[in-house]
Computed example of a mutant assay.
Amino acid sequence: MAAPAAKQDGFHDCRDAWARTLEELAADNPDIVAVVNDSVGSSKLGGFQKKFPDRLVNVGIAEQTMVGVGAGLANGGKIPFVSAASCFLTGRALEQVKADIAYARFNVKLVGQSSGVAYGELGPTHHSIEDFAWLRPLDAITVIAPADAWETAEAVKWAAAHDGPVYLRLSRMPVPDLDIANRVFRPGKAEVVREGQDVTLIASGTTVHLAARAANALQAEGVSARVLNMATLNPLDEAALSAAASETGAIVTVEEANIRGGLGGAVAEFTAGHLPVPVERVGFPGFVVTGSVDWLFEHYGISETGIASAARRAIARKRP
């Protein structure tokens, strides 16, 4: 079963955690401001606007201007959270993200809403599956894709305190909270969801709980699968990748993004240059056909069954 397009019991919209946390932080820090592109509703910032009407700037449908305004506010000592649909924030305003924020290393927090294929039937114009590939080369920007509501809240807190540009990739698709005891948010460090010795499943964002479910299915077959939540794609946790390659000998990456340049590309780059092992990449191969979120996930193998199949392929390719 794919990630649900509609909210189910036990599933939470990470945007609720983002909005609630930003309001709490803004109440204590008058320097926190929000900048949007006529996206107050989709960014869930209606409450923020009511509480802090003078600290929300709506530039209208002008994403390049939006990013430039964010850079100017940061240059003036504010802490701007620039929020918009990730397909437009990272696509239409990429030049401004590169020149105004990454190159200048301004303290701007980019918040890409409704990432991946969350817009479903609206199709490739509204899908945001290339954002990892576009932003990873901009090494000044910390790129984070939270896996659940708890991690979203912690990432927003960290971003507000961090001095430097950040990209938070949030989805509108509800996801369950990960069942991990004593969690600590550490940007740049992979989170161990479960241990394993035969293969490592490395996932990010909305796909982490699917990787955990695939690991449970594999366990029933006698396959021990390690699961890592690689929430931070830039910088990548190379120590965790080295351990995965050397200790399990096979890797599967899972992402709601294009495997070319995304998490799969990043992991393949690292292993090819350091510890060559079989790597199977689960994600989108390029532009995808139009369909519902559930159908797209299932069609492209971003599911418990698809991930388990990729794990079997990776194990079969392991050197004797």
Rank of each mutant, 00 (worst) to 15 (best):
M1H: 12
D16W: 06
V33P: 13
D38I: 12
V40M: 09
G41M: 01
G41K: 08
L45K: 08
G47M: 06
G47Q: 01
D54T: 11
A62G: 11
G68Y: 01
A74S: 15
G76S: 07
I79A: 01
I79N: 04
F81V: 02
F81W: 08
S83I: 10
A85D: 11
S86F: 07
F88L: 01
T90E: 04
Q96R: 05
D100K: 00
I101N: 05
S115L: 10
S115P: 03
G116C: 14
Y119K: 07
L122C: 07
G123L: 05
E130A: 00
F132N: 01
P137N: 02
P137V: 02
A147D: 03
D148M: 02
A153Y: 06
V156P: 02
W158R: 06
A160W: 12
D163N: 14
V166N: 07
V166K: 06
R169D: 06
L170P: 09
D177V: 14
D179A: 15
R183Q: 15
V184F: 00
P187M: 10
G188P: 04
D198P: 01
D198M: 02
T200R: 03
A203H: 05
T207G: 02
A211N: 02
N216V: 14
V223P: 03
A225H: 08
N229K: 10
L233K: 07
D237R: 05
L241H: 03
A243H: 11
A245E: 10
E247C: 07
G249S: 07
V254H: 01
I259V: 15
G262L: 04
A266M: 12
A268M: 11
T271N: 03
G273A: 13
P278H: 06
V293I: 12
L296P: 04
F297C: 11
Y300S: 11
I315A: 10
A316T: 04
R319D: 14
P320S: 09
